[in-house]
Design a protein around this nucleic acid. Structure first.
Lengths: 276, 276
DNA sequence: GGAACGCTTTGACTTAAGTCAAAACAGTCC
DNA sequence: GGACTGTTTTGACTTAAGTCAAAGCGTTCC
């Protein structure tokens, strides 16, 4: 988080010179280059954008892929800066966010392994509409813009996958706007907690009852950013939901005590049906 | 606006049975069918999604295109309803919006002639993430979902154009979120007015100085929806900007008296640069 | 003209949520 | 075990903006 912007930009620049760089220190890596290429194409096959592609297509993709390893809190790019290319998360997590002139942060989306981001800037070449930074140590697969565009033109299958991916992102932003425009902070928090619990985080527990304990995947400050508010207000929202008996908070472990009422809070049933 | 939802849905259903229906009453129309087809393909060539396509590609597009004529205030589709297909605006304007449980409306985007919308639902087949209604008498070119998908697979050029179009929409939503999350209502209004004036509405006037009188392209109620607020609050925002000497309001004619200060209000210069 | 309708403004009030600063808490590191 | 750092909570206060309802305007249409 405190990593200076300058050093991070250098990191990006530095990596974009390299071809394939496996810096992963965890797993077994003998003969880095070759194993890297082979494993990478198998792995790409399971991502959203590159799924369903032929081996030969994957090979040409791997040709232009660049691996980047980043520490926690590193800045990938800044809103307003020139488009560099397109990213796929290999491991770790990345937040895409905007910062207001007064320093308030709004997280637009958080991307996990297998997901991709920054297609918009890669596609139209205009400046990034948001900034991106890692939330934890992260490995990225980076595609420089022009090579990526060539790829798209050569392999229409990728373009189709890309359309689906863009659609998902658009849908997501649509939901963010709905939340910001229609819901107060406790409602947004309730929405978030329910989504989290549905996405199967939290205690594995027995299949019998879907676990009602979720573990926050963000610090509360980050969560505040994601919900379009600030830590102080989020804290009060937690207190409010607790006082109403909807949840029980213990650090980052949240127990959902009353799913029904949370659900109702999160999405009050529409009473009217007439359009504007 | 008051047109009942039921009658509108019937309209859509009714039209989706037809092939090409030119209901345009304005221009000269002898032998509707043939002239319709020919003119349509020339016209499509100038739209965002279908530009740069070959004559033969345009022909296959026209094959599945359906023309719809709608009155002012008709509902095209409702948030949550099943995806039907993809639309291009031939003439008129369409608003895409969400309605909160309490009846508050948030306009996500307004589409004019040559623009397209509802790609997301057409692509992924999930329910519409927002509703759409006409703002004025409007002609639409409609592509049923499956036919549209087939087209995409057959003509990768369209997929590429589509990517660009989706990118634009994503960028736009990004801006909406930025406004909602960071700006107060007067700031959003200032932003809107500046954008309007730059987009060259208002008095044609001499080229020497870019006209400083803009004509609102929406009623003030609609504008309130577009800015994520309500009429009463928007009215006060107009009053505030007037009282500060930034604008002069005369009905839907707004004179921008002090562009510099409007600009500054709209986008306060960032003072910090450090990432979160 | 004037009733009728919809849009816009205004006033008085309420409330959600931001600000700022201090305290509490938690985790890390000698 | 403290000292240190960063995060979270809390308290007191301010402010933007929503609510509700009443007037004010402006069109359209008999």
């Amino acid at each position: 988080m405190q990593t200076s912007q300058k050093s991070t930009l250098q990191t990006v620049a530095q990596f974009s010179k390299l071809k394939i760089v496996s810096r992963s220190s965890g797993s077994c890596d003998h003969n880095e280059e070759m194993i890297g290429e082979f494993e990478l194409s198998s792995w790409l096959q399971r991502t959203l954008v590159f799924q369903g592609l032929s081996r030969s297509q994957l090979v040409s993709i791997v040709q232009i892929a660049q691996l980047q390893s980043l520490n926690k809190g590193e800045l990938l790019f800044k809103q307003g800066s020139e488009a560099t290319g397109f990213f796929v998360v290999k491991s770790g997590r990345v937040k895409v966010f905007q910062v207001s002139p007064t320093g308030k942060e709004q997280i637009l989306n958080i991307f996990e392994a297998g997901e991709n981001f920054a297609e918009v800037a890669a596609l139209d070449g205009k400046p990034f509409p948001a900034s991106a930074a890692t939330l934890e140590p992260t490995e990225l697969i980076f595609f420089p813009r022009q090579a990526f565009l060539d790829l798209l033109h050569q392999h229409p299958d990728i373009a189709i996958n890309m359309l689906i991916s863009l659609s998902q992102h658009l849908r997501h932003l649509t939901g963010v706007i709905e939340d910001l425009s229609f819901k107060d902070v406790p409602q947004r928090l309730a929405t978030y907690l329910l989504k989290l619990s549905r996405s199967g985080i939290g205690e594995p527990s027995t299949r019998s009852h879907p676990t009602n304990v979720v573990t926050l995947d963000l610090t509360k400050s980050q969560l505040a950013s994601a919900l379009g508010t600030i830590p102080a207000t989020l804290s009060r929202a937690f207190y409010y939901l607790s006082s109403e008996g909807l949840i029980a908070v213990n650090g980052s472990q949240i127990e959902l005590l009353d799913r029904d009422r949370l659900q109702e809070l999160s999405y009050p049933t529409k009473q009217d049906c007439s359009p504007s």
